[in-house]
Amino acid sequence: MTELHHSNGTARGRLAKRIGGAGLALVAVAGLGLAGAGAAQAAGSRAATPTCTASGLTASFGQKLGGGMNHAGVVLKLKNTSGHTCLLRGYPGLGLEGSGHRALGSSVHWGDTWYAKDPGKKTLTLKKGASAEAVVSWTHANEGTSGARHASYLQVTPPASRSHKTLKFPAWVDNGRLSVTALAPHIAVTDQAA
């Protein structure tokens, strides 16, 4: 009888362990489900915020930057006019146009400029009416320089966009070379004029 009681106690112990283990497994699965649902909801809210497009942004020039050694620059601003929050990440695309909006040969360097350190790529959440800025710079030795481009307009393509904005840009640009920083809420500039 003692043996039967002992055996019975062991069977009950094993049953309790199985139920306890199954209960823990059930709680763990439920916890993972809640964590998964939370992660999915967070990902869903991020995925629900669209990328800013050219049609939902206005482009304008802010502070003009001067300096020695034939350097020039300007703060470029992109403002969200879409009526909803959107995301921007990276560098604006740039291109030069001559009179009559004829494309001119140009190249763009992404990174530090003569006037500002590059803040690097960061995803910006632009609420309705908010702006992001980048600093554009170039050199200009004017028409006497071989390869100088006399621009009339600047094409500005927001990151991940297929269309662009066009701004008046009457400037000489040596060899059509422009430098631009990544977009940021605000970029500190140093006017290099001495």
Rank of each mutant, 00 (worst) to 15 (best):
A54V: 01
V75K: 07
N70F: 10
L26R: 10
G31Y: 13
G68Q: 08
A16Q: 12
T85W: 02
R177H: 14
I19D: 00
H140W: 14
L183F: 08
W114T: 15
G67P: 02
Q192D: 08
A141R: 14
P185C: 05
Q155F: 00
R14G: 10
L96S: 05
T145L: 12
T10F: 09
W110H: 14
I19T: 11
S45F: 00
G38E: 15
V156L: 07
T145C: 00
A43W: 11
G9D: 14
M69E: 14
T2W: 08
W110Q: 13
H150V: 08
T166G: 01
R162C: 00
E143M: 06
S99Y: 10
A11F: 10
K168W: 11
T81V: 15
T190V: 12
R46F: 11
V136K: 01
A48F: 08
G44H: 13
H71N: 13
A37C: 05
K117Q: 15
A11K: 00
G95N: 06
G21H: 08
P92K: 10
L24Y: 11
S137K: 04
L57N: 02
R89K: 12
L87S: 12
E97W: 04
S152W: 09
G66A: 08
A25D: 07
R46L: 14
K79V: 13
F169E: 07
G62C: 10
K122Y: 05
Q155V: 10
S131E: 15
R162W: 14
A130Q: 14
P92M: 09
E3H: 09
W114E: 15
Q192W: 04
S99H: 08
L126T: 03
K17E: 15
G67V: 01
G23H: 05
G100M: 03
G73H: 05
H71I: 02
T2G: 13
T49F: 01
A39V: 14
A151C: 04
G90P: 03
S152F: 01
L32W: 13
L154D: 04
A182Q: 04
L57Q: 05
K79I: 07
S137T: 06
L78C: 05
L96C: 06
A25G: 11
K17G: 11
G68E: 06
C52F: 06
V189Q: 05
Y153P: 04
I187G: 03
L178R: 09
N70R: 06
A132W: 02
H140D: 15
A194D: 11
